[in-house]
């Protein structure tokens, strides 16, 4: 099944390419402007990439929620879902098969974005790379599980489109993915922690700008794990192999 997912990706690589290419462009364009924003926030001399690289990574990883949702819904639209089930694929295998390629995509996204940041945008991790990797890995898991929860709880593809894409933008903005939370309007500050992106960015800031190690980001990691658990709960509660899903047509 994973082979077929890769085959489908090969026939239509554009969305995946956009999810990696687009944040690269935005990172490059925004890094200079972000330098002064960071300075105003107390990080004098830090490169703008310290905000834009993790920020864009969070925002564009969040689009993987939609990628997972669509990967499941399109199978209903093509009416191949019952055929996969008739082939004897268990729920676990079906879901594993559906998550594998998005997982690969999010991993590639992080490697490319952070790699590009280090090579071309003066990104430096003053603390622990391992902490950065933990945050990235946990955030990636969170978005994949959130995608499953969306696919399980929503019943039409229009809902998936609206909730996942708009949700990704909103949570990304709210959580400080575009600009740091402390430069967002006053009234936004108290609700920013409702976004998982806030906690990922909090951890990244600690590890990248403040010299933090793994021990220093356990707090944000715990919150991200809690978000993941909530989404997993929704997915387990609502997921039914034979649930009808309305797509196009």
């Amino acid at each position: 099944m994973i082979r077929n997912e890769l085959r489908l990706l090969r026939h239509d690589p554009v969305p995946a390419a956009v999810l990696v290419g687009m944040p690269l462009v935005l990172m490059t364009l925004l890094s200079d402007a972000m330098k002064s924003t960071l300075a105003a926030g107390g990080h004098e001399g830090a490169p703008g990439s310290a905000q834009t690289v993790p920020g864009m990574a969070c925002v564009f990883a969040s689009f993987a929620i939609a990628v997972v949702g669509f990967a499941i819904f399109r199978e209903h639209g093509w009416r191949t879902w019952p055929r996969l089930r008739a082939a004897g694929l268990s729920g676990r295998k079906l879901i594993g098969g559906k998550l594998a390629v998005p997982a690969l995509l999010v991993t590639a996204q992080h490697v490319v974005l952070f790699g590009f940041g280090v090579l071309f945008l003066d990104l430096e991790v003053s603390g622990s790379w391992l902490a950065v990797i933990f945050i990235a890995a946990l955030f990636a898991t969170l978005v994949l599980v959130a995608g499953l929860a969306a696919a399980a709880a929503l019943s039409t593809i229009q809902q998936v489109n609206a909730v996942t894409n708009l949700g990704a933008m909103a949570l990304g903005g709210l959580g400080g993915g575009f600009v740091p939370v402390d430069s967002l309007p006053e009234w936004v500050q108290p609700i920013a922690p409702l976004s998982p992106v806030y906690w990922a960015m909090d951890g990244y800031e600690t590890a990248i700008l403040e010299g933090g190690g793994v021990g220093d980001v356990l707090g944000p990691l715990a919150v991200l794990a809690a978000f993941t658990a909530v989404f997993a709960g929704i997915a387990l509660w609502r997921f039914k192999l034979d649930a009808p899903k309305r797509t196009w047509g």
Partner: peptide, 26 residues
């Protein structure tokens, strides 16, 4: 069992051959 449901279920972006492969692999 081999099942052909009432409504056509195929991968439209894949070729005919690849559709057969996809299910053969399963």
């Amino acid at each position: 069992p081999g099942l052909a449901p009432q409504e056509i279920g195929i991968y439209p972006s894949l070729t005919v051959r690849e559709n057969l492969w996809a299910f053969a692999e399963l």
